[in-house]
Amino acid sequence: METDTATIRVARYRPEKSEKPYFQEYKVPYRKDTVVLDALNQVKAEQDGTLAYRWSCRMGVCGSCGANVNGVPKLTCATFLHEFKGKSLTIEPLANFPVIKDLVVNIDDFMEKLLKVKPWIIRDKQSPPEEGEYKQSGKELDRYAQFSSCINCLLCYAACPIYGLNEDFLGPAATALAYRYIADSRDQGKKARFPIVHDLEGVWECTLIGECSVVCPKGVDPMLAIQKTKILGAMEAPKTMLSPETLKAILPRGGE
């Protein structure tokens, strides 16, 4: 395998050195199997230890190493340099997040949203483990399995213009995880999660741009989860509207 040299343009932001972000170019050797993360690691190890970015598993499952590569959110560990042969290659922090330093973004907002959707099994009654597992058929598993594959890499948030325009939008990954639990046959927390996903900043903000699903490296298809949540909500609406609680609230009270 032959070795080539590429020039990568990396967005830098070093708050202790300058208030303004800037770009820095590095020359890196690469082969057919070199990924963008390898290039960053080469820079860090051999050229410039000040470059800051996150990474760990380098096999596309820990979700740390997302960055905007030529404007498109990517896992740097799964993006090959040779795909950019003859083109310029610019690496920037994930869009739509505040930047702490260089390629490191602040993901507090997502962590709060994740907590908000109650991403755990909610049941009226927990049976003790001694009674054995909750049975689940292949079909029941299929209903949510794909949405449980979210690695929280947040490429979808970087790709979502709705989130870009409105920070309060619950967003793709958090909704996918909410739906993952709603659709799980073991869960009974639909009621608890509905007010959150159907909030003003919830699923109805989504206008089906679909870029979240295009950039998702794990085939989660958050857009699908959002639409499925919309459908569930719409089906539930007549029930909610005609529920005794709603009727009591809107009908004139007799005799009181």
Binding site: E133, Y134, K135, S137
Partner: peptide, 22 residues
């Protein structure tokens, strides 16, 4: 076995046999 079932109860999406067992 206790820990495995506990994890299942917490929602781990284990693969299943046709009879619904892990």
């Amino acid at each position: 076995p206790h820990e495995a079932v506990q994890l299942e109860h917490w929602g781990c999406p284990f693969s299943r046999d046709p009879d619904g067992r892990i």
